[in-house]
């Protein structure tokens, strides 16, 4: 039995905190939605490479989006949003964005996993080990972004691995490889953050309203995402939470309240029995 104390607090080298002594730079994704053309090559490449099963051939009626959201069998999800906009060419503005697991610096899923199935790789990414997960399902509601889910006919939980196998072989993840516009960029996180800031400055200068980075800030509620985004509208428009906070930041308070309550219970029972005969 190993004692895994998990990860809390702000830190910028999660791989080192998890015990990787000599590790490669932290790798991540920068998804620049301003150049996404909604071709779904990333979704397809991910399914192909990771052998992710088919998850229903549904017509949702949600623009061109027929996969709805991230889950056990959708590890890249392209969102399509038609925002009515007076004065634009077609009367609406079309937003497209390829969503993915954020590979959080402080990952709730990893913190709460009771089997140690979820671990931090040497690249600083967050991966579920299929051969360890027992499908307890705790990680599913722990994730503030709604990324993981249970594969019903399998019983275990699945999510993006940031192509751990490909990274190990010096390759980029399948989605980034397939993306024809470089909307999905893969690389060392530091470099991606610089590049994203440059792109944002360009857009602001060009007068593009609503452009913002999402998840690039190491001081945010998850300590910064390993996979972050350049969005053109509020995060919730894309189905992303505007200010997610890793739940385990509050775990100390919870344990304290639990301890007080437990002592209170013992004292209440004791008091009821001791307090007088009748």
């Amino acid at each position: 039995m190993a004692v895994d104390v998990g990860i809390q607090g702000a830190m910028q080298d999660p791989a080192a905190v998890s015990g990787w002594l000599d590790h490669p730079p932290r790798m991540g994704f920068f998804t620049d939605t301003s150049v996404c053309i909604g071709c779904k090559a990333c979704e397809v490449a991910c399914k192909e490479w990771n052998q992710v099963p088919e998850d229903g051939l549904n017509l949702t009626g949600m623009s061109f989006d027929n996969t709805s959201g991230l889950g056990a069998d959708t590890w890249r999800h392209v969102a399509f949003i038609e925002r009515p906009e007076a004065g634009s060419d077609h009367g609406f503005r079309w937003l497209m964005s390829s969503d993915v697991c954020k590979h959080c610096t402080e990952a709730a899923c990893l913190d709460v996993c009771p089997t140690g199935a979820i671990f931090r790789t040497e690249f600083g990414t967050v991966v579920v080990q299929e051969d360890v997960c027992n499908g307890c399902g705790y990680c599913v509601p722990a994730c503030p972004y709604g990324v993981l889910d249970k594969r019903e006919d399998d019983g275990r939980i699945f999510k993006c691995t940031l192509c751990y196998d490909r990274l190990g072989a010096g390759q980029e993840p399948a989605c980034a490889k397939a993306c024809p516009t470089d909307s999905i960029q893969f690389g060392p996180l530091d470099e991606l953050r610089d590049r994203a800031q440059g792109k944002l400055d360009q857009l602001v200068e060009a007068g593009v309203t609503g452009a913002r980075l999402y998840g690039q800030d190491p001081s945010d509620g998850v300590g910064g995402a390993g996979a972050f985004f350049l969005l053109l509208d509020e995060p919730e428009v894309y189905g992303l939470p505007p200010d997610p906070v890793v739940t385990t930041r509050h775990l100390g308070e919870m344990w304290r309240a639990v301890a007080v309550a437990a002592v209170g219970l013992a004292m209440a029972v004791g008091g009821a029995f001791i307090g007088g005969q009748r």
Binding site: M1, A2, V3, D4, V5, G6, I7, Q8, D111, V112, C113, P114, T115, G116, A117, V132, C133, N134, G135, C136, G137, Y138, K150, D154, G155, R156, I157, T248, L251, M254, W255
Partner: peptide, 26 residues
Amino acid sequence: TDLGRPTRALNMLRVFKPTSPMSVGT
């Protein structure tokens, strides 16, 4: 019974994680 893979129930005893109330509870 509620586990997706009940035969792997004992995987809960691989680690002890104070960050996971489920681990502490197990």
